[in-house]
């Protein structure tokens, strides 16, 4: 599959930017978070592609780390959303601009 390297890479970058666009546009904090997970999916794909091309396991291990981190971030992030919801009854990002200027 080496010949497909650029395809994998392009797919990775595309996923990354789909995620980025979603993260910028959506209002629901959970969906924004999922979009960031899509970005991470793109990153994972990039790492795995490179781990293939460079014959080096660094990338594969990195992906495992990223997955673990994603799980941790999900836990902490959802706890924050939960807290926010309990306090205000909403997780709409456009409702929170107490801190500004």
């Amino acid at each position: 599959m080496i010949e497909h390297q650029s395809l994998f890479l392009a797919l990775a970058v595309t996923l990354f930017f789909i995620g980025a666009a979603g993260a910028v546009v959506r209002r629901n904090a959970i969906i924004v978070f999922m979009c960031i997970e899509i970005m991470l999916g793109g990153v994972n794909l990039a790492f795995l592609t490179f781990t293939r091309t460079t014959q080096n396991l660094d990338g594969a291990f990195m992906v495992m780390c990223i997955m673990a981190v994603a799980a941790v971030e999900a836990a902490v992030g959802l706890a924050i959303f939960f807290l926010l919801y309990r306090k205000t009854g909403s997780i709409d990002l456009e409702k929170f601009n107490l801190l500004k200027w």
Binding site: N28, A71, A75, L78, F82
Partner: peptide, 15 residues
């Protein structure tokens, strides 16, 4: 985890 949170916060429809 995420789906569980969505259910718990009752956020099925986007605000």
């Amino acid at each position: 985890f995420i789906i569980f949170a969505i259910m718990m916060l009752n956020l099925r429809v986007n605000p």
